[in-house]
Simulated assay, not measured.
Amino acid sequence: MTDTASRFEIVSDEAGFRALQSDWDALWLRAHGFYHQSFSFCWLSWQEVAKPQGRQLRCIVSRDADGRLAMVWPLISYKRLLWTYIVPLSPVGYDYSSVLVEDGPAAPELIDGAWDAARQRCGADFVHMPCMKEDGDLYRLVSKETRVVFSESNTWVVARLRDETSWEQYCSTLGTLFGKKPGAAERRFAKEGRLAVRMVDASARDEAASVIDWMLECKRGWGERVGKQGEWLNSASFRNFLVHLVSSTDVPPVGRLIVVSLNEAPVAAAILGVGDLCASAIISGFDARYGKFCVGSIAWEHAVKWSFEQRYDLDFGVGGERFKAFWGRGNIATAWTIQTVNSEWGMLAVRGKRLARELIGRIRRRGRGLPIAAPAGEAIGGEPELAQRDGAA
């Protein structure tokens, strides 16, 4: 690559970020980008969530010798106490970490350069990369880092639909979900009243907002029942992000909202993100009173069928939920979330935390009449990855 092609710029102002839109859109199409790599998704993430939270833009870009945008990687930085963290630009931080770049011989070098720019030029003490696909170049780089404070793997599932030629033939290969074949849950539930399944029009902002409010309330109830809570469930910023994702007039909406209703009242809903060749599951909710009818499964079945009709694959994201593996026919891979220490100042925080935990452990062991020293092989401070990889820690 030439010097011009390998030059990396960090865009940190909103005007410069917005000015990338047309070039970004063109690159996204050439790279067959996912919904979370689109300018629309990233702009809404910035406007509705990151900017109100006081975070800072750190969007890394590179252009080729002809000045054409060749790579873009939108990141943000924020302070936690005295330390700076770098994370991908996202509303809640659970979307895939990936660099938007056109596939080809130059791609690995561009991703290498983006990673170096993130580590060396963004002033980060810690770098947090959620949900990196194990077969990707970004994971290849991050997994080589020696100072890792957090590392976790998750399964992710994709329903490969683009090569399917018949919906009926595809369904015949799936078996049953909760004892039912595709279509059976909907036929059973239709006996309860006037059943309708539809996609909310992007121009119907008020309706989309009403359904999303209802869906998030259902999601909060589900979280309480299963003991899974997240700040985003009660976040007005995240709620606004979802509303704009499916009905924005500022940028093209890249979300689709599917609603299942009974007697004109919603009982289940799901939001998809739309990429160039692949749709992605974002969030869903259902009325627990109709749980026995598997109304959530009805919503996802229609999401899969819509994706099939549009000639999209459907990425269900991370998580081992049964319905994902069902529609994906076992097409399961691994995604990794890794946080690394990126500065000596960051190492000081890790060592201080470890020392505090060691002292607390000593006090507790002394109170129980146990040996003060930790058992052999125990990683003090809960940082086994760092303890193993960094001999100075």
Rank of each mutant, 00 (worst) to 15 (best):
R329M: 15
P371S: 14
K219W: 09
T173S: 04
D23S: 15
D213I: 04
A393Q: 11
S97Y: 05
G179N: 06
F308Y: 12
P252I: 05
L89Y: 03
L110M: 12
Y94L: 14
H244A: 04
L272R: 03
M1G: 13
G223D: 12
A373F: 00
L69R: 05
A269T: 05
K228G: 05
W222F: 06
W28L: 12
P105I: 01
N331R: 15
R7I: 06
L82E: 05
Q310L: 13
A325H: 08
L233K: 12
E231R: 08
V259I: 07
L138C: 03
D206A: 14
A50P: 13
P182I: 02
E378L: 04
G227F: 10
A270G: 02
L29G: 14
A15K: 13
R7C: 12
F8I: 11
F238D: 00
V127Q: 03
K191R: 10
E134V: 05
E321A: 15
A333Q: 15
G67F: 05
G285R: 06
E48I: 06
W167I: 07
L69E: 08
F286V: 00
V99S: 15
R289G: 14
A374V: 03
P375G: 12
I372E: 12
T165S: 07
P252N: 08
S143L: 07
W300I: 06
A270L: 08
A15Y: 10
I332Y: 04
D390L: 11
R311W: 10
A190V: 05
L262T: 06
W43D: 04
F41Q: 00
P130Y: 09
C294E: 01
L348T: 01
L355Y: 00
V197Y: 04
G275S: 04
Y170S: 01
I298Q: 01
V11Q: 08
R322T: 13
E168Q: 08
K219N: 11
I283V: 11
E378H: 05
A202I: 11
L138Y: 11
G369A: 07
G136V: 02
A209W: 13
Y78E: 06
N342T: 08
V72G: 09
G275R: 01
F39H: 01
I86N: 05
R366W: 13
G16K: 03
L110F: 12
G320F: 07
D25P: 09
W115A: 15
R322Y: 06
K144L: 13
F39N: 00
I363Y: 04
H128F: 06
G179A: 03
P52M: 14
T340Q: 05
E164W: 08
K79T: 10
E301R: 10
E207Y: 06
I332L: 11
T173P: 01
M199S: 03
R188H: 12
S343Q: 09
F126R: 00
